[in-house]
Design a protein around this nucleic acid. Structure first.
Length: 255
DNA sequence: ATGGCTTCATAGTGAAGA
């Protein structure tokens, strides 16, 4: 069982990369963020030809999430329950007996902004809902673009980023509050290369210089973490022409 | 250097991302 997440920064632009990546990697589940397209535009047929079905929640220009899977997705939830929001940032479904939650956490813009307060409120609501969801579904995976680098080792230059949005203490506390629900950061269940990141700015040749952050994560509940045999960031798509600024993250589960 | 790229919506620029 292979679970993956990828912020594609426009599914319309990135569809060729996504189809190539699915063909090469054959994940059972791929969660997408920033699809940036309305549901009527979603490439259902192209994915079906690749052997995948999808559930999705999109909007024009911004946000948008989807769960692509080989097996049928059931019990679909659209949006974060208890947090009315025009922004399409969460979709959840059951696939192969696993509760898959796909999130695009708000960016927060800057720590003194309304968007930052919205980010923290969104994360608090996510935690409250997940508490219930874990009661109903012990086998739960939370995948997505968290827009949080949990520790300094997830930041290429911690001094330059100190206190900034994506690394600030309240954001990190919100991340750790998710872990306190019993979720494990699958990436850190294993030894990893130093300076492992999942996002690099388009500017300043940041990817070539590996000036990145690790902000895309796969958190697993205990029964899934026990069976997790590996987690890795796939940098290959970031090297392509017209890449997303994020790389896919993949977790393997035994069975 | 608060910029640098990229996308989208739009028809020359502005917002937003992270």
């Amino acid at each position: 069982m292979k679970l993956a997440t990828w912020n594609v920064n426009s599914l319309k632009v990135r569809l060729p990369h996504v189809l190539d990546w699915l063909a090469a990697n054959q994940p059972d589940v791929l969660c997408l963020q920033e699809t940036k397209q309305e549901d009527s535009q979603f490439p259902v047929d192209e994915l079906q030809q690749a052997g995948y079905q999808a559930v999705f929640s999109g909007q024009k220009t911004y946000n948008g999430v989807a769960i692509i899977s080989k097996a049928v997705a059931t019990e679909v939830v659209y949006g974060l329950p208890g947090f009315p929001d025009e922004q399409k940032r969460l979709i959840a479904a059951t696939v192969n007996g696993i509760r898959v939650v796909c999130v695009y956490v708000p960016n927060g813009q800057s720590v003194d902004s309304d968007k930052y307060r919205y980010k923290l409120a969104w994360l608090a609501a996510l935690r409250e809902w997940l508490k219930q969801e874990l009661g109903r579904y012990p086998k739960l995976a939370l995948l997505g673009d968290y827009n949080i680098a949990p520790e300094d080792r997830d930041v290429h230059d911690p001094q330059a980023w100190a206190g900034n949005v994506l690394v600030s203490e309240p954001e990190r506390a919100a991340f750790h509050a998710l872990e306190q629900l019993g979720l494990r950061d699958s990436f850190r269940l294993f030894g990893q290369p130093e300076k492992s990141y999942s996002w690099w700015d388009y500017r300043m040749m940041a990817f070539r210089r590996n000036m990145g952050l690790r902000i895309d994560h796969i958190l697993l509940s205990a029964p899934l973490a026990q069976n997790c045999t590996g987690c890795a960031i796939d940098r290959a798509p970031r090297k392509l022409e017209r890449p997303s600024d994020h790389a896919p993250v993949v977790a393997d589960l035994a069975g």
